[in-house]
């Protein structure tokens, strides 16, 4: 900025440090607690000093909540949600932006409206569809007095975990935003060079979208990893449990021993992957966040 004033600068630093303590403090508590012994973690006042017990606590947590299986499932789920979103929304945005057809407005609005209603308010019927993918078709046929005997249950499957989460608008608008910034002449030049629309999509749009894909990948990974309600409803088979579902299993039992050090170590394992992604790819994460919202 223009001129520097010592008081204002000191005040600015004070604010930044307070903000740092408020936002990072909880991390430090978790880190310290996860590395302490049970008596240490329960001591009042709490000591912020980390101790050497982290590996022991972590392996206790790992065993208690079967984090190995859950970790695999969470990774698969986050990866599928991310890949599905990155691929499908690129296709939809392409259809919306680059074609001269009245249908594109139908596409645009039908995707746009999904921004309004999060899963939480339509979770019951979504669950019903997942329980039998053909339920909508059956109902429509039933309306005309027809009955069919097919059923496709998505509960306790990766498809069931991920498909409903891919059915949102986030990525589509990120791509659309980007496509709109490309000069019209780019597609025209490609057309003059003899390239058709599909070829243009693969030769031009996808390579040019790399940074957007990276941005979308970071936010979708975090989104997929952090899903809580949906897996909680979908999954009854422990072999499909995700990490988020394991959180409650980490809690010390109500009247049992308060081994919060183990709980905290387990929480840390669950929190770590998205935090690492955001820390390492922060530039892309921020870009994805800002440009997918506007």
């Amino acid at each position: 900025m223009i001129q520097r004033t010592p008081y204002a600068d000191a005040f600015t630093y004070a604010i930044m440090v307070i903000g740092f303590l408020l936002l990072l403090g909880p991390f430090l508590v978790v880190l310290a607690g996860a590395s302490q012994t049970m008596p240490q973690v329960n001591a009042v006042p709490f000591s912020f000093l980390p101790q050497g017990e982290f590996m022991k606590n972590a392996s206790a947590a790992w065993a208690r909540a079967d984090l190995g299986t859950a970790m695999t499932n969470s990774l698969i789920m986050a990866a599928l949600v991310t890949a599905g979103k990155v691929a499908l929304s690129a296709c939809t945005a392409f259809a919306i932006v680059f074609f001269r057809t009245p249908l594109k407005h139908v596409f645009f609005w039908s995707v746009f409206i999904t921004l309004m209603l999060p899963l939480e308010v339509r979770v019951v019927p979504t669950y019903a569809v997942a329980a039998d993918l053909f339920q909508p078709i059956k109902s429509i046929l039933g309306f005309f007095g027809l009955e069919i005997g097919i059923e496709w249950n998505l509960l306790n499957s990766y498809a069931g975990l991920t498909l409903p989460l891919i059915a949102t608008a986030t990525g589509t608008f990120l791509y659309r935003q980007f496509f709109m910034t490309l000069p019209d002449e780019l597609a025209e030049a490609a057309r003059m060079d003899g390239s058709g629309s599909v070829r243009f999509f693969f030769d031009m749009l996808l390579p040019l979208s790399r940074t957007n894909m990276l941005a979308l990948t970071t936010i979708m990974f975090v989104y997929g990893w952090n899903q809580y309600l949906w897996p909680l409803l979908m999954v009854t088979d422990p072999s499909y449990k995700t990490l988020m579902m394991s959180l409650l299993a980490l809690l010390p039992s109500d009247n049992g021993i308060p081994d919060w050090n183990v709980t905290l170590a387990g929480s840390l394992i669950i929190m770590a992957p998205p935090v690492i992604v955001v820390a390492v790819l922060q530039r892309w994460f921020v870009r994805g966040l800002v440009s997918s919202e506007k």
């Binding site: 000069p183 002449e185 490609a190 003059m192 031009m204 390579p207 040019l208």
Partner: peptide, 27 residues
């Protein structure tokens, strides 16, 4: 356009930003 035997030079050049010069010329 590709069937008309025309080539066009655009005002803003419309080069393919992710391709090299050779890639642009030879596309």
């Amino acid at each position: 356009p590709r069937e008309r035997g025309c080539a066009m030079v655009f005002q803003n050049y419309a080069l393919y930003p992710h391709m090299t010069v050779a890639g642009n010329i030879g596309y």
